[in-house]
Design a protein around this nucleic acid. Structure first.
Lengths: 176, 176
DNA sequence: TGGAACACCTACCGGATTGGTAGGATTTAC
DNA sequence: GTAAATCCTACCAATCCGGTAGGTGTTCCA
């Protein structure tokens, strides 16, 4: 499995906050945030352990994706509109740097490098592969916004109890 | 990190075998395989632990990607031409099923399903995301063949001691 | 003014996985 | 018959994962 359950829980948490967000359609400043949502409400709605969700949401807060208010009637809300939050923001906040391989890190110049750069005079060919894989992952994460998931969630909510099919242009057919 | 070092080692092993493969350009039956390459030679060339490589190559053999001959002067060779081996074949043989999330498995009908199918009457929105991510990964793996990596390896070998740049159409720019 | 309801923080913990090592058994060329 | 090689299984230390536990700090409300 490529991502851990932190990503799963965190994304579901964000979707839940997005569903509460008043300015889903608008793209204004959204200063009016409405009532904050408590973690306990989300944990109950999604059936997730509250104490563990606390650790998950801490990462989202440190990445400035959510804001919080302490005390009674406190809770969390999105720090900007769902259409301005890409899933790359969310997943990389939860999972750390997204790299297909250990040796695959970014140096300060934002250039992809390999930590074992040249083997016996030639470049490691695996770098070509991992670069392409990373590109595929990052592109799919960057082109999916939280608003997409919120809309999908609302859409499938309307016509419920349907068999599970995925309305996608890209149907995954991993077996050749 | 998304893939383990099994994938790294296994891909490098396959590239090494591909470099030895006589019929890189041809696509015939390649019954003439030449000399088999011993694991020790590969381990020495790549600086990898031999005993661990044995476990890695066992997976490639079970997936019918390499063939072997025992005894003195034995070794391994590709079971078909490098241009007919995609990196999806290789990586999924090494890493098992490629799925972005635990709940993401294939049932016998080859349809993507989610093990926690409907939460409170609606579909989990994360499935939309993981389906796209999986599509991005699988597509990048399927469109890269072993022949691509072998050629890249040979190409960068000719003009050695150059700064590390990646000749790709898709330059990875994960940071927005 | 005192709960109650929250966010926030840190330590711990059992189980699984990873990245090997060790030691052999078997097969084949010379 | 010996060396070179594949093949097989068991083991091991370290790390990560998914969570639990137990607390502190802050704010609202009766």
């Amino acid at each position: 499995m490529i991502f851990s359950s932190k990503a799963e829980y965190g994304v579901r948490l964000m979707v839940e906050l997005g569903r509460q967000s008043p300015g889903t359609g608008r793209d204004g400043q959204t200063d009016d945030v409405g009532q904050p949502t408590s973690l306990k409400a989300i944990a109950d709605a999604e059936g997730l352990p509250l104490a563990y969700l606390e650790q998950v949401v801490a990462r989202l807060r440190k990445a400035d994706l959510v804001m919080s208010a302490r005390g009674a009637h406190g809770g969390y809300w999105l720090s900007r509109g769902p259409s301005e939050i890409t899933m790359y923001d969310v997943v990389s906040a939860l999972e750390g740097q997204i790299a297909p391989m250990d040796c695959f890190v970014h140096d300060p110049t934002d250039r992809v490098v390999c930590s074992h750069p040249a083997e016996a005079g030639r470049h490691c060919a695996t770098k070509l592969l991992w670069t392409r894989v990373q590109g595929g992952i990052v592109r799919s994460l960057q082109t999916t916004t939280l608003a997409d998931l919120v809309e999908f969630s609302r859409h499938s909510e309307e016509r419920a109890e349907r068999p599970l099919t995925i309305p996608l242009t890209l149907t995954a057919t991993p077996e050749s």
